[in-house]
C-alpha cells in the first residue's frame, strides 16, 4: 500500500515538474513584448528618456533583463517560496494575490457543479436503467448534453434565461452597483449571477454521468454475479444494490479522468459570463501578454488538477477492494 502511494506520488511529482517547465517555456515563446504592451496601454505622453527609465524599471521588476537560464532558476526559486512573480497586467501586483482573489469564484462554480452533477447524473442514470420510458427520453437528451461544448451551452443559457427571459443576470459575478459585503442583498445577487454559469457546467457534466451510469448498470445487471443472485432467488433489491455499487467504481475513475476537462470547461464558461474567476483572469492575462500571471494560472490549474486526481486515486483504493488486493498480492 505504501509502495503504491509512493509510486503514485513520484509520478505526480514528475508530472508536476515537467508541466511546470513547459508552463514556464510557453509564454516566453509567445510573440510580443509584455513591457512594451504594458507601457503602450499606460499611454505614451512621456519623454523617450522617461519611457526608457520606466521600461528599465519594469524589466528589472519582472526580472526580464536577466539571462534566460537565470530566469528559469528564479522561477523555481520563487515557486518554492510560493512566489509566482508579479503581474504585468495588474500593475505589478503579486501573481499569487491576483490568483487568490479569483480562486473563490472558480471553486464556487466548480465544486458544486462537479459534485451535484456527479450525484444527480449517477442517480438519474441508475433510475433510467430500469424505467423504459425514462430511458427513452433521457438517453437522447443525455447524449445531446454531453456532446455540447461548455461555451456553446453557456451562450444558449445566457441568451434564453438572461437576455430573453431576464430571469438571471448573465455577466459579472455580482452587480457592479454593489460592494462585496455580508448582506442578504449582496448574497442573493451573488447567487443570481452564479446561477447561469453553474447551470451550463452542471448540465454538460450531468449528461455525461447519467449516460455512463446507465450503461454501466445495464452491463453490471448482466454480469455473472447478478445472474447467480437471480438464479438463487435473491430479490431485485439486492441485485440492484450490488450492480449500483459496482457501477459506481468506473464513475469514480471517470471523475479523475474528467477533472482536467471540467476545469477547462469552467475556464471557458467564466469567459462567456465574464465571471471573475481564474478563467477570466487567464483570458485577460493572454490578452495582455502577461507572462507571470499566465504562468501562475497554468501552474495553479496544474497543481489543482493533479491534487484532485490524487484524492480520487485514494478514494478509489478505499472503495474498490480489488485494487487493495492487487497491492497486497493475492493469495491465489
Amino acid at each position: 500500500m505504501r509502495r503504491y502511494f509512493g509510486r503514485k506520488l513520484l509520478t505526480y511529482t514528475l508530472t508536476l515538474f515537467i508541466a511546470a517547465t513547459i508552463d514556464w517555456l510557453i509564454p516566453r515563446f509567445m510573440p510580443g513584448d509584455p513591457v512594451y504592451g504594458l507601457m503602450s496601454r499606460m499611454g505614451n505622453n512621456s519623454s523617450p528618456e522617461a519611457a526608457k527609465a520606466l521600461s528599465d524599471y519594469y524589466y528589472n521588476l519582472f526580472g526580464l533583463n536577466q539571462p534566460i537560464w537565470q530566469q528559469y532558476l528564479n522561477f523555481w526559486g520563487g515557486l518554492l517560496h510560493g512566489d509566482l512573480g508579479r503581474s504585468v497586467f495588474e500593475h505589478g501586483q503579486p501573481v499569487t494575490d491576483a490568483i487568490m482573489a479569483a480562486v473563490p469564484y472558480t471553486l464556487a462554480l466548480l465544486i458544486p457543479a462537479i459534485l451535484l452533477s456527479w450525484w444527480a447524473g449517477n442517480s438519474f442514470g441508475a433510475l433510467a436503467a430500469r424505467r423504459k420510458w425514462l430511458d427513452n427520453t433521457m438517453l437522447p437528451v443525455g447524449y445531446i448534453l454531453t456532446a455540447t461544448p461548455y461555451m456553446w451551452l453557456g451562450i444558449v443559457l445566457a441568451f434564453v434565461f438572461g437576455f430573453t427571459l431576464k430571469m438571471f443576470p448573465f455577466a459579472n459575478s455580482y452587480g457592479l452597483n454593489l460592494e462585496p459585503s455580508f448582506t442578504w442583498l449582496f448574497f442573493t445577487d451573488l447567487v443570481a449571477h452564479w446561477m447561469l454559469p453553474f447551470l451550463s457546467l452542471f448540465l454538460v457534466m450531468f449528461g455525461g454521468w447519467a449516460i455512463g451510469m446507465r450503461n454501466m448498470i445495464i452491463y453490471e445487471l448482466d454480469a455473472d454475479y447478478s445472474r447467480y443472485l437471480e438464479a438463487l432467488g435473491a430479490p431485485q433489491r439486492l441485485v440492484r444494490k450490488y450492480a449500483f455499487r459496482n457501477a459506481m467504481l468506473p464513475q469514480i475513475t471517470g471523475l479523475a479522468l474528467q477533472l482536467g476537462v471540467i476545469v477547462a470547461g469552467s475556464l471557458v464558461t467564466e469567459i462567456v459570463f465574464s465571471y471573475q474567476g481564474v478563467g477570466l483572469l487567464l483570458f485577460n492575462a493572454i490578452k495582455s501578454e502577461d507572462y507571470f500571471l499566465l504562468q501562475g494560472i497554468f501552474l495553479f490549474v496544474i497543481v489543482g488538477v493533479l491534487a484532485a486526481n490524487f484524492l480520487v486515486d485514494i478514494a478509489y483504493v478505499i472503495v474498490d477492494p480489488r485494487t487493495r488486493v492487487g497491492m497486497r498480492g493475492g493469495t491465489a
Binding site: 454480469a223 455473472d224 445472474r227 477492494p321 480489488r322
Partner: peptide
Amino acid sequence: VIPQYAMSAMNPT
C-alpha cells in the same frame, strides 16, 4: 444451480 460461470459467480467487490 452451480452455474457454468462459477469462477465469476461471486460479487467481486
